[in-house]
């Protein structure tokens, strides 16, 4: 008993997500450029970059785990994407709930770090350290925001969260969840790796951190991973707080809204150091998060 429709849908969504992810990356660059009064690259520039990387004549490797890391990251991102209900496509979302998806969205980071660590580069090492500390720092407010949401809607299923919102209004219209939304949006900045929390790659500081040793097809895989991750995370955000979407166009508009908030914040803030980020996350977002969960109890 093979559900061909589901498989076709999954393949379609995967292609769409990859493509749109690259477009989102392009939008990010374009918007940043316009904010700084530049013209900026065309929207499909990241796609061209990736294809160029994939076409390199030679790539280097530091061993099996070095190769496996990016593959694992991309694989886990694809798996995460397929468990998220995307607009009217439910895909495999009945098989995994919010906690599973939230975890799966973090797994790619382990893949990237695994590969980066095995290169033995000190910048990679530093990047890994920063990545994990960012994760440690943001996890508490992130968890609190998710808990507030689940407590309010009373379910862990993403599709049910969407349908509840379609009946009772978006999450952000509930005062307590508005607080959770603020927390989640701050954390989201770190999830996307944008300023002020682009501590992991930190281009000017530690030369791209974990990605420093990657070139050629490895970098292409990581770019693709980033694109899909961007799509998956913006969708996740939309589902949790913006009422989900009933078709791809609505979803696109909401994703764009989410993305633009992040871009605007990112383009005016300088980077935090890692200990500042930790202290920041454990102060205001955590306090707001605790208020939010207590209000939803």
């Amino acid at each position: 008993m093979i559900d061909w429709k589901l498989i076709l849908e999954a393949i379609g969504i995967l292609i769409y997500a990859t493509f749109m992810g690259f477009i989102f990356m392009g939008i990010e660059r374009k918007a940043m450029a316009r904010i700084q009064r530049r013209v900026g690259p065309p929207l499909w520039q990241p796609l061209i970059d990736t294809l160029k990387l994939l076409g390199k004549k030679e790539s280097v490797s530091h061993g099996f785990i070095y190769d496996f890391g990016p593959i694992f990251a991309l694989g886990a991102t694809i798996a995460a994407l397929l468990f998220i209900p995307i607009a009217n496509f439910q895909l495999f979302s009945s098989n995994a709930d919010l906690i599973v998806v939230a975890y799966l969205l973090e797994v790619p980071m382990l893949g990237i770090m695994l590969g980066a660590m095995s290169s033995g580069n000190p910048f990679s090492g530093l990047g890994v350290q920063r990545g994990l500390l960012t994760m440690v720092a943001m996890q508490l407010p992130y968890g609190l925001a998710v808990i507030a949401l689940v407590q309010h809607w009373g379910t862990f299923m993403l599709s049910e969260i969407v349908s509840e919102q379609q009946m009772h209004g978006w999450s952000i219209t509930v005062p307590a969840l508005l607080l959770a939304f603020i927390v989640f949006d701050i954390v989201f900045q770190a999830m996307l790796g944008l300023e002020p929390f682009d501590i992991v790659p930190a281009p000017a500081e530690i030369s791209m951190g974990p990605m420093v040793e990657y070139g050629g097809k490895h970098a292409a895989i990581l770019f693709t991973q980033h694109a899909i991750q961007l799509f998956a995370e913006t969708t996740f955000f939309t589902i949790l707080f913006l009422g989900g979407a009933s078709n791809l166009l609505t979803l696109f508009l909401k994703q764009l809204a989410v993305l633009f908030i992040s871009i605007f914040i990112a383009s005016i803030y300088p980077r935090f150091t890692i200990d500042q980020a930790a202290k920041f996350f454990w102060k205001w977002p955590t306090i707001i998060g605790i208020i939010a969960v207590l209000l939803t109890m």
């Binding site: 030679e58 280097v60 991309l74 050629g216």
Partner: peptide, 8 residues
């Protein structure tokens, strides 16, 4: 995707 790229 990895196999498609050039040999490492």
């Amino acid at each position: 995707v990895y196999l498609y790229g050039a040999r490492a």
